[in-house]
Simulated scan of single mutants.
Amino acid sequence: MRKEYRVKKNEEFQEIFKKGKSVANRQFVVYTLKRPEQKHFRIGLSVSKKIGNAVTRNQIKRYVRQVFHEFDGYIHNDVDYIIIARKPTADMDFYEVQKSLTHVLKLARVLKKSFETVKKAEDRD
């Protein structure tokens, strides 16, 4: 994922925490903040040291980035996202992370309607 698609600065994180909306499930907390002037979504990741060692934390971050890469056409581009991983993510594989993130993004209402039709078609196959 390109650097311009990431939230890196502490001030940006704090602004999203204060002004954005949050939605959570057991594995992830997602903060969203609309940015109408933005052409592409940006994500910020937070994985605490309580979750595991560096290898585990980096793996979780890779999984989350890959999920967002696959959702590229299905999530709104004018939004900043912060994803905070909780402890249960340490024991999850990619597909479990994908399922959990899909669930929390649906709760946040940031997935486009076209995602629903694609997902239903895949489930039938």
Rank of each mutant, 00 (worst) to 15 (best):
M1E: 07
R2S: 01
E4I: 05
Y5Q: 13
V7W: 06
V7K: 06
V7G: 06
K8H: 11
K9G: 05
K9I: 04
E11R: 11
F13T: 05
F13P: 09
Q14L: 15
I16K: 02
F17G: 06
K19D: 03
S22I: 03
V23I: 03
V23S: 12
V23G: 04
N25R: 00
Q27H: 08
F28I: 11
F28M: 13
F28S: 13
V30L: 10
Y31C: 03
L33K: 14
L33C: 13
L33N: 11
K34H: 02
K34Y: 04
K34M: 02
K34Q: 09
K34S: 08
R35H: 06
P36M: 08
P36N: 09
E37H: 09
Q38S: 06
Q38F: 04
K39A: 08
H40M: 07
F41M: 08
R42Y: 01
R42Q: 12
G44P: 09
L45W: 15
K49L: 10
K49P: 05
I51V: 14
G52S: 14
G52R: 06
G52P: 07
T56N: 02
T56R: 02
T56S: 10
R57P: 10
R57S: 10
R57C: 08
N58I: 10
N58T: 08
Q59S: 12
K61A: 13
K61N: 09
K61Y: 02
R62M: 09
R62W: 09
Y63V: 03
V64D: 04
R65Q: 14
Q66S: 11
V67T: 12
F68W: 04
E70M: 04
F71S: 07
G73R: 02
H76N: 07
H76C: 07
H76E: 15
H76S: 04
N77C: 06
V79I: 15
D80L: 09
Y81F: 15
Y81R: 01
Y81G: 04
Y81A: 07
A85P: 08
A85D: 12
K87R: 15
K87E: 15
P88F: 05
T89Q: 01
D91A: 15
F94W: 03
F94A: 07
F94V: 07
F94I: 11
V97L: 06
V97D: 06
K99F: 12
S100T: 03
L101M: 10
T102G: 00
H103K: 08
L105A: 02
L105P: 01
L107C: 01
A108E: 03
R109L: 10
V110A: 05
V110G: 07
L111N: 09
K113T: 11
K113C: 02
S114Y: 00
T117Y: 00
T117V: 08
V118H: 03
K119R: 15
K120H: 12
A121W: 06
A121G: 00
E122Q: 04
E122I: 09
D123W: 04
R124N: 13
D125R: 12
